Simulated scan of single mutants.
Amino acid sequence: MSNLIAALAVIISLAALAYARLQAVYSRQQLKLAERIRREASEPYVVADIQPRAGGSGLLVFTVENIGPTVARDVELSVTPPLKGGERTDWDEKIAQVVGRKIPHLPPHRRLEWFFTFGPRFMANPDLPRLYTVTVKSHGPAGPVEPLTYIIDLDVIQAMALDRDTVVAKLDAIAENTKALKKLPNQ
């Protein structure tokens, strides 16, 4: 009987040891996850995109924005294929220079934007690339940030209100209507 009790004690001790080891492994995993969450919550997040300049605007701009809580340093962008808006070659060259240049720092919530193209003309030209892959590398307070890769699909925004009149076009229409009203005889 005492051998049976001793065997049960050994089995219970081994089970307790295995359980303690599993708890230690689980605790280490939890600690690693908590550390990763803490680190990522304090990193900058730099997003690159092509979007309308403002609501109802036909202008498309290339934007780079830090949506994270800390300063992004040494921001590098790589875009494949090279951005090509189709307006003028010198504009495409200028935006290529911007993309090729390292941004020394980008504070939290800072947004940079550059003219890319006029949306309706761009969408009317099927020879221009519609899909871009942008990779962003930067450094945060804890060192290098994991590179972020974005796919910009301009066909997604094709159905947006890019063909709406711009503010200037609306003002021109108001001016024309005002001229027409002035020509009417007084009643």
Rank of each mutant, 00 (worst) to 15 (best):
P44L: 08
P82H: 05
A175N: 14
K137A: 10
A96Y: 04
F62S: 04
S138M: 08
P120S: 07
T178P: 04
L14Q: 02
R53G: 06
Q97S: 10
A169K: 12
A180H: 15
E65N: 06
R73V: 13
Q97E: 10
K182G: 03
A48V: 01
R39G: 00
R38A: 07
I37C: 07
G100C: 14
I151T: 15
S27C: 10
G56Q: 03
P147S: 01
V136F: 05
L31C: 00
I67S: 10
V98M: 08
V64Y: 01
T80A: 12
D49T: 02
T133K: 05
G119Y: 02
S57I: 07
V71D: 11
Y45I: 14
P104Y: 13
Q23I: 13
L77F: 05
S27T: 14
N3H: 00
V145D: 02
D92H: 00
V168W: 09
R130E: 01
E40T: 07
V136E: 09
A173Y: 15
Y132C: 02
E40Q: 11
T133W: 03
A16E: 00
A124C: 00
D49F: 00
T166V: 01
V79N: 00
L4M: 00
R121L: 09
S57W: 03
V46A: 07
P104H: 13
N66T: 15
P141H: 04
A18L: 14
A34P: 06
G55I: 10
R101M: 10
E76K: 08
Y150R: 12
D74A: 10
N177H: 11
Y150D: 14
P81L: 06
